[in-house]
């Protein structure tokens, strides 16, 4: 059984304003992730870890191949189908928090729950629980996270990412720049998600964290295209 199945995915960037340079970055990417499994993408910087992750999320287009998440092929699906997939099935914890200014932290965290129809009281309880577990001081909850420190923003981002229990998740450096206490909280969240059967693809530069939560590693350098002479 697989939750995410990637087959022969290829990607290149065409830079129209720089002499139409074509930069092939990936070819023949193939991997699958079962429910409850956590797979780490590894490879040198620039090898395409983030690119592959962004393609799974539909943030980058793929030139060839199939990217099945559940029964949706992200590589060919209409925008509307991808939006629905992101709402109900596929979560993404990026490295950067991007929010509408002025929206309070509690609402930012509760929003993914509200988007799937959870009532505001229930969503708020969950948001409060996550924010306190991630040690965001309660006096900040009613403020917009735009003015928070980098580490606080990252924790708000993680709280938001884990608010709704998606069956599949993408984690981009979820423990980067966290102190030991918060790092342990995030690893617990990941292990709990795995125990629930969530299929996870992650990028972890933190070796110990990777060893603790990941079942196997996929080296994306294997998908680097042969450069034609």
């Amino acid at each position: 059984m697989t939750m995410i199945k990637i087959e022969n995915v290829a990607k290149s960037f065409v830079l129209h304003n720089q002499g139409s340079a074509i930069i092939p970055v990936m070819d023949g990417a193939t991997l699958s992730i079962a429910p409850g499994e956590c797979v780490a993408l590894v490879g040198a910087s620039g090898a395409g870890k983030s690119t592959l992750m962004r393609m799974i999320y539909g943030n980058y287009t793929a030139q060839a191949g199939r990217i099945m998440v559940g029964d949706v092929d992200v590589a060919s699906a209409a925008p509307r189908a991808i939006l629905e997939l992101r709402r109900t099935t596929l979560g993404y914890v990026s490295q950067f928090l991007r929010v509408v200014p002025r929206v309070p932290t509690l609402e930012v965290v509760a929003e993914p729950l509200r988007a799937v129809g959870v009532d505001s009281a229930t969503a708020e309880v969950r948001a409060r629980d996550l924010l306190s577990r991630l040690n965001i001081p309660e006096r900040l909850w009613t403020l917009s996270p735009t003015t928070f420190s980098g580490g606080e923003q990252q924790r708000v981002n993680i709280a938001r990412g884990f608010a709704f229990e998606y069956p599949a998740m993408l984690l981009d450096e979820p423990t980067a720049s966290l102190d030991a206490t918060n790092r342990a909280v995030v690893l617990d969240l990941i292990l709990a998600a795995k125990a629930r059967g969530v299929a996870i693809v992650g990028i972890f530069h933190d070796d110990a964290a990777r060893t603790e939560v990941c079942d196997r590693e996929v080296d994306v350098s294997d998908f680097t295209p042969e450069v034609a002479a």
Partner: peptide, 22 residues
């Protein structure tokens, strides 16, 4: 060009969109 907002802005395909974003 048309598409998901974040896809068009982060991975623009058309030369004009690339120019606009950059």
């Amino acid at each position: 060009e048309t598409g998901l907002t974040d896809q068009v802005l982060d991975d623009p395909q058309h030369g004009y969109t690339q120019l606009l974003v950059s």
